[in-house]
Simulated scan of single mutants.
Amino acid sequence: MERANGSRPAGCGVALALDFWPLCDTWGIVVQAVAGAGLVICVVLMLALLLWSACASRRRNSVLAALMLFLMATAGIFALPYSFLIALSPQTCPVRVFAFGVLFSVAFGALLARGLSLLGVSLARGWREVCVTAALALVQVIIATEWLLVVLVQDKRTCQFSQPEFAMLQIYVMVLLATALVTALGFLRYTCVTYSYRDSGQVHRQNKVQASLLVLTLLLSVCVWLVWITLLTYGNRAMGRSPLWDDPVISVALTANGWVLLLGHGFTQVRFMCKHNARTKDPPLDFTGWTSSRTPPAAPPDLKTGTDNEGFQTDTDARRGNDVAWSGIFMRELSAEKDYSIPRPTTTNINEPYDEYYGHRV
């Protein structure tokens, strides 16, 4: 892709072909650096999850697989700008046409499946979440394959297509994006207006955070798609910058949307999984002070041991065995000089109690 004035970028060598000039241009270097950093982070996160999966419980393996699939799609989105930095050719055309829609269909399909799973839809619970993501992406695979075969092979066009045609090829991906956004908004509304007593307050707050981040991620993705489609189909041509700005717009949009997906869903899901794993590893219960030794403690010199209910204690020992804890109490001998009797009420006229009432002796 040549500059507007036809000059070679300062960083390009003399022997470098014209198709590769954007790689050493200023905007190309910036896009490569930002996209490369996102690609490296995605790979590091996937490797860390693979190492962590050995310690993860079996119940969380399905969530781990779904997150791995999403990170793979995000890594592919970060790698895709390189095919738009290089000029359109028979080698880069299939990558642009096929990988663009498929990678975004996997990413947005994973977000849609995640939203359905959080809503409690049985179709997307457990390992079915991964299956739903793969099935949604398979539709775009079929669409892109048919488009390549029909348009580029049957019509014998050497990978020449207009920008509106490229945007129309992504209609299914846009439907996935809109559906995922509606699902995320539904889950956000559910977490705000309902409260389940089966869940703790911490779980409820985490669901609200997940719903908010999911909505934010999809809203920012919608904004990115609206911008690049508008510029690609109308804006660049209206400003007189088409086709010079077409590939840079898509490259920047891919990099920006990749970071939105990575920060909004990738990082947060890894953090939620680590927090969940930390909560499941609670320390064992400490029953210190709940039970005591079988051997009774030494009694003070002036006290003797005893039981509050000897018959009940004997029956309990027979049922539970001899390892039952000692439950005796200490008793003190009562002094014979002191009166421990319970006082009772007495009458003033003991011999003739009814004389005063009747007024005469019976």
Rank of each mutant, 00 (worst) to 15 (best):
G6P: 13
R8V: 12
R8W: 03
P9C: 09
V14G: 06
V14S: 11
A15S: 13
L16E: 14
V30K: 00
V34E: 01
G36Y: 04
G38M: 11
V40Y: 14
C42H: 03
V43I: 13
V43K: 00
M46Q: 09
M46S: 14
A48E: 15
L49C: 12
L49R: 02
S53L: 12
A54N: 10
A56L: 14
A56E: 15
R58E: 03
L69G: 02
F78R: 09
Y82A: 09
L85N: 06
I86N: 07
L88P: 04
S89L: 04
P90H: 08
P94G: 14
V97T: 09
V97S: 04
V97E: 08
F98S: 04
G101W: 00
A110P: 01
A110Q: 02
L118T: 01
L119E: 06
G120F: 06
S122G: 14
A124D: 12
G126C: 11
R128A: 12
E129T: 15
T133M: 02
V139E: 11
T145G: 10
Q154W: 04
Q154Y: 14
D155H: 10
D155F: 08
C159P: 04
C159L: 11
C159Q: 04
Q160G: 05
Q163R: 13
L169E: 00
A180T: 09
F187G: 10
L188E: 00
L188S: 15
R189A: 14
C192N: 01
C192A: 09
Y197K: 00
D199S: 11
N207Q: 13
V209T: 12
Q210D: 13
A211D: 02
L214T: 10
L214G: 09
V215W: 00
S221C: 06
S221N: 07
I229L: 03
Y234K: 12
M239F: 08
G240C: 08
R241I: 09
P243M: 05
L244P: 03
L244Q: 15
D247I: 03
V249R: 05
T255W: 10
G258E: 00
W259L: 02
L261P: 07
G264H: 02
H265R: 04
G266I: 11
G266F: 10
T268C: 13
Q269A: 13
Q269I: 05
V270T: 12
R271E: 06
F272G: 11
N277D: 07
A278S: 10
R279M: 11
D282A: 14
P283K: 05
L285H: 06
T291P: 06
P301L: 10
P301Q: 13
L303C: 05
K304D: 04
D308R: 07
E310C: 07
F312H: 10
D315L: 08
A318W: 08
R320Y: 10
G321E: 04
N322S: 05
V324C: 14
A325C: 05
A325V: 11
W326Y: 13
G328L: 07
F330L: 14
R332H: 11
K338T: 14
P345K: 08
T347G: 04
T348R: 12
I350A: 15
